[in-house]
Simulated scan of single mutants.
Amino acid sequence: MSQIELKNVTVELDGKLLLENVSLLINDGEYVGLLGPTGSGPSYILQVISGLLKVTSGQILIDEIDVTLSPPEDRHVGFIFEQFNLFPHLNVLGNLLFGPRMRREDLEIKTKVAREIISLVRLDGREDAYPKELSGGMQQRVGIARAVTAGAKIMLLDQPYRALDAKIREEMRFEIREIVKDLRLTAVHATHETEEAMIISDRIAIFNEGKIEQIGTPEDVFINPSNLFVATFLAESNIWEAEGANEKVSIGNLSFDLEEESTGKGKVVIRHQTCNLFIDEPEGPNVFSVKVLKIRILGEFIRFTVKVKDNIEVVCREMLNMKWKNPDQFIDQQLFLQIDPSEIKFYKQI
């Protein structure tokens, strides 16, 4: 296992600022997700750690050793991309031994090591298989095994599951994390998908325009987003201009109770899945009579668009179950909307 530390890292390329003053500590054996929109920074961080992208200023330390100027081959880093990048003319064992053979290492010792790693990545009996004979998930495991055989202590994963179909992708998220933990590697995983980051990460760093907006456990960043960008990036949300006073916030004539005190003008964020709909009026705070305008089925969910007073539209997400059987029957009907005060986020205008 290895510790990684970035200190005030800035990267400029062709006049464009890719990373700005990024500091990040990744502990031994930690699996850290880097999450953000395309071009916001996660993939650049992987390239900086690996040595494929030079920093303009700042430091990269691995196990407290400054590797800022070290070439990639001296950093003991394995890189797993979206594309599998296996040698098609070599079988599994041959792919693992390619690096050691080029470096003229003792192949007898390395073959023994490679076979042990093949077992650890759950590819027993497939040593003689060629890449075209393996599933996408198996090929990703070969990529990890090859990097570990070559001496990698750090695994960098750049959107590794994007080329896989949905079912395999879901399985691999859990499987690769388990393998990385079993191999006692430190992992840094870049993705644009919130669900993926939430599943695989011990901690998540959320990027926007080359900067870290927030870092924390998946639960912490999701439940306690530090700002408007994080709150709306992590989940589909209703967003309104609003004004806060004491423990209330108002959108026109519509007023919500909050859990925390708010003052001044700002924006209110209420995530779709926290807007709860009822056929019968519930008890408690923030209950409103609403009219259903639109309904859309999204797989296992239903998205309702409802109208509250003053023609304010709210989007709600409910599970598709017996309660909402034949959902089209609710169009133009009255339902009741309830929102827990703790789920309403108010971000004061700066």
Rank of each mutant, 00 (worst) to 15 (best):
I109R: 14
S119M: 11
L96T: 02
A163K: 11
R184H: 12
K181H: 12
E108Q: 15
E170R: 15
D106K: 08
D158C: 04
G143W: 00
R115G: 07
Q159A: 14
R126M: 09
R169Y: 05
L96N: 00
T149A: 14
N95Q: 06
E105L: 12
A166H: 06
E178K: 10
T149Q: 07
M155H: 06
S135H: 13
E108W: 10
T186C: 12
F87R: 05
R184T: 12
L107V: 00
T186A: 09
K110C: 06
N85P: 09
A152D: 10
R141S: 08
I144V: 15
L164K: 07
M102F: 02
R115M: 15
R104N: 15
G125W: 10
L93F: 01
L157G: 00
G143F: 04
E175R: 02
R173W: 05
L107K: 03
I118T: 01
T186H: 08
I179S: 00
A163Q: 11
L157H: 03
V148M: 01
A166E: 12
R177M: 08
E170L: 15
M172P: 07
L97W: 00
R101W: 09
Q159G: 10
E127T: 07
Q159R: 14
I117H: 01
T149E: 03
L157V: 12
Q140D: 08
P100S: 09
E116S: 14
F87A: 10
L123E: 06
M138D: 08
H89I: 13
R169L: 10
R104P: 10
R169M: 04
E116V: 11
R169W: 09
D124T: 15
A150N: 02
V121L: 00
A145S: 12
I117E: 01
V121T: 07
G137D: 14
V148P: 04
K153L: 10
L157Q: 03
L164M: 08
L96W: 06
F174R: 11
V92N: 05
A163M: 13
K112S: 13
Y130E: 11
G151N: 13
V148Q: 04
E108V: 07
N91T: 04
R169V: 06
D128C: 02
L183K: 00
G143V: 09
A152R: 02
R141G: 05
L93G: 03
R122L: 06
V92Q: 09
R115P: 01
Q139W: 03
P131N: 13
K153D: 15
